[in-house]
Design a protein around this nucleic acid. Structure first.
Lengths: 328, 328
DNA sequence: CTGAAAGCGCTTACAG
DNA sequence: CTGAAAGCGCTTACAG
């Protein structure tokens, strides 16, 4: 590939001058500028940002580590991140940490070796070793749609309150036998808090919770199917379900239909996430929404501010919101 | 950040030796190795890959340019790419080219400046200027889920044949009044060929096509809704619809339901893509599938082969496949 | 307005 | 087994 030296030789100036015009630094004649620019174009010269980065000790790269689990909101997070990043002249380098973040330490190391100036880890829960590794990094890190107790800043929705609001919404619409479907009880970030929010809402409205109404799972479509079958068999059948994800909600709705139940007349359903399937469901799914795009965007904003100022990043709870559609 | 020099000073050896042990090159005493590794660990040293890349003129980075339109298969393509890339010790740097690739030239330039060793452009149609730019690049480029007539290699499904097969599938299941919904007639890559495939299938089975049966759109959910309403008003109403995307198919199905039509009894629907909504639809959606993950994976394989061998990349048509579910 | 030179952090022949 | 030195392609004081 042509280098700055090639265009310098072609035009008979020094590489310093070439560098200056390529970077619009001013302090050269119009004539020189034109000569250099046309030479660069002629030989198809692209400047080497790696070399510049090395010299400037600033690569303007942000790292993004995603989980392998293919989720429907994957694209939204990435787009939020990339949009704000590129607006600030950062590139984003993306990697996957394996099924349950098994590969996370290696990913973080790779990012450090690539000299990212900031790092985003999305939807992966950290173990102590990684937390430790992260604490010792020389660049800012922010978690998105996950959290940690070790002081690493995060951006997420308040799962417990969101679950509380979702459950309350069902109660306010006249439902008393409200069930919850799909939470992974091993998951202390997205699983347990949503169950706690659900319980609290029931408690605050003096509604009893039957243990069969809490049907755990893996946030999946299949979890919804299983849960609905289980609910259907119950003597005291729930008349509303808070599904811990849109996928789970779809599983509930489809199975309810197969079982001859109408949504929302026989059983109301509220989902969680507000992925694109929510509006495409039939009936359209009422949900608690997580602002995925915004989470990504905000993460980059915080990162760039931290990079520029050297200040520490504050965690932030983003507002969830209920989108009313037709499933309740 | 600590540099190789720091660990050299700490251990009293030269940076050459440090470099050797860090790269497992052999040719040093066990004792030296241990000294160096523990020193590196102690000061939290990560080697600077940018510097190494500059020296070696090889960054081991693959560029990925995606469209801004948020699609449900976004994640699958990215995962396919990232999986194979990281397996080969490549990192991937991702960027978005704006709504209809408006920003594409800048993206390509950026990738060149970042010194990617290979570039993937997904689902964006190229204009002549970009095609030209790409021809002059010093690294291999491959298109995914899109194509170009200028000789740039691509990986995609044969849209026309896939559409032909989808339509034929409906015909074989006893339908004669088959409509098509959602194609963008300006789109010569995914729009027109699917209409052509549809027409050919009808022709080959001696079935007339009424002009109202071809309802164009934008591949969207809304396009499906509109199309179904239009079909419903027809005197000669279609009894089956080939929807040019899963989203469109969902729009058809939901609207059919709202209109009192049963799927598949009153109207059969086949989708296109096989995104995750297909299995979550009710009834589950029969589709022609595009292997998105595989497209991404294959793109990287071709790229790495080309990088290593210097050989030119051959285009490849990937096999589509019909997934039978319950909507036909 | 322009150039010579140092240096960013590495790798790698070459020499011993 | 180890080190001195050149060089990857830039940027940027410094000097004129």
């Amino acid at each position: 590939m042509p280098t700055i030296k090639d265009v310098a030789t072609m035009t008979g100036v020094s590489i310093a001058t070439v560098s200056r015009v390529l970077n619009n630094q001013g302090g050269y004649s119009e004539e020189t500028r034109e000569k250099i620019e046309s030479a660069a174009r002629e030989i198809n010269y692209y400047r080497n940002k790696m070399a510049a980065s090395l010299k400037k000790s600033s690569a303007r790269i942000i790292g993004l580590i995603m989980p392998n689990a293919p989720t429907l909101f994957y694209g939204d997070i990435v787009e939020g991140i990339e949009t704000v990043a590129s607006r600030n002249n950062y590139s984003v380098i993306i990697t996957h940490a394996g099924e349950d973040g098994t590969n996370l330490m290696d990913c973080v190391s790779l990012m450090a070796e690539r000299r990212v100036e900031g790092l985003i880890i999305a939807s992966i829960s950290l173990d102590e070793a990684v937390e430790n590794q992260i604490q010792n990094l020389a660049f800012p890190v922010v978690l998105v749609s996950t959290k940690s107790n070790s002081g690493i800043p995060y951006i997420k929705v308040d799962d417990q309150t969101a679950a509380y609001d979702a459950t309350t919404y069902l109660i306010k619409h006249g439902h008393r036998a409200v069930a919850i479907a799909g939470p992974n009880m091993q998951d202390t970030i997205a699983g347990l808090p949503r169950v706690a929010g659900y319980r609290q809402a029931m408690l605050d409205h003096n509604l009893p919770v039957e243990s069969e109404w809490i049907h755990s799972g893996t946030f999946s479509f299949e979890s919804g199917i299983e849960a609905m079958h289980a609910f259907f068999r119950l003597v005291h059948r729930p008349d509303a379900v808070f599904a811990v994800s849109d996928d789970t909600a779809l599983g509930i709705m489809n199975t309810a239909g197969d079982l001859g139940l109408r949504v929302p007349d026989d059983i109301a359903v509220i989902g969680y996430d507000n992925t694109r399937v929510a509006e495409m469901a039939n009936p359209a799914l009422t949900v608690v929404s997580q602002p995925f795009f915004q989470m990504g965007a905000k993460a980059v904003q915080k990162l760039t501010t931290a990079i520029d100022s050297g200040q520490v990043i504050e965690s932030e709870i983003l507002k969830h919101r209920i989108f009313e559609r037709r499933s309740v």
